[in-house]
């Protein structure tokens, strides 16, 4: 990866950030409800994961953090920002670590990342509500995270194969 201050680096980061925000917005518009609070498809993670695998951790982290901040400003509030940061940071850290260890492929990394994202948000809910009762949602969120994480991971794998490297 060429210099971090280069125009190419900045442009790439911006395009990815736009895409990630769009993904989040589409999800917000589609508001596709499974009936369980907190269950989302997590399309934005496709972009973060793509950046992590195609470019490097700094691009992916930048995209992730800016996306969380901007989407909280655009569609959320302080509470949703707190949830976003908790989930986003832990998920990113785990995915970055798993990629380094190189034991799993994109799909597995995505699934575990999604599960960690959900568990971090449960932790945040426990903190905000001051009760451990929220952990009764853990099983559902574990299954949902695995399923949606694997699906978004598959989509990301597809994109990594289809989008030319020199773009």
């Amino acid at each position: 990866m060429k210099g971090k201050g280069s125009a190419k680096y900045t442009a790439r980061l911006s395009v990815l950030l736009c895409l990630a925000l769009l993904m989040g917005y589409i999800e917000y518009l589609a508001a596709f409800d499974v009936g369980v609070p907190g269950v989302k498809a997590g399309f934005a993670n496709i972009v973060v994961l793509f950046a992590l695998y195609r470019y490097d951790a700094s691009v992916a982290f930048g995209v992730n953090l800016c996306r969380i901040g901007l989407s909280a400003l655009l569609f959320g509030n302080a509470v949703s920002a707190f949830y976003g940061v908790c989930g986003g940071l832990l998920a990113f850290f785990v995915m970055w670590l798993l990629k380094k260890i190189n034991l799993f492929g994109v799909v597995g990394v995505s699934a575990l990342g999604a599960v960690c994202h959900n568990m971090a948000q449960l932790g945040a809910a426990a903190l905000l509500s001051g009760t451990v009762y929220v952990f009764s949602y853990a099983p559902v969120l574990l299954v949902a995270g695995t399923v949606f994480g694997a699906l978004t991971g598959l989509l990301c794998l597809f994109l990594l194969k289809k989008i030319p490297e020199n773009l």
């Binding site: 799993f104 492929g105 799909v107 597995g108 699934a111 099983p139 559902v140 574990l142 299954v143 695995t146």
Partner: peptide
């Protein structure tokens, strides 16, 4: 090693699902 990773991915997902579904059906 790609194939190994795919296999590990499948195992990982199966384990996560099994734990989750098991917990859902806990009495």
């Amino acid at each position: 090693s790609d194939k190994k990773r795919i296999f590990r991915d499948i195992v990982l997902i199966a384990v996560l699902l099994a734990v989750g579904i098991g917990l859902v059906f806990l009495p």
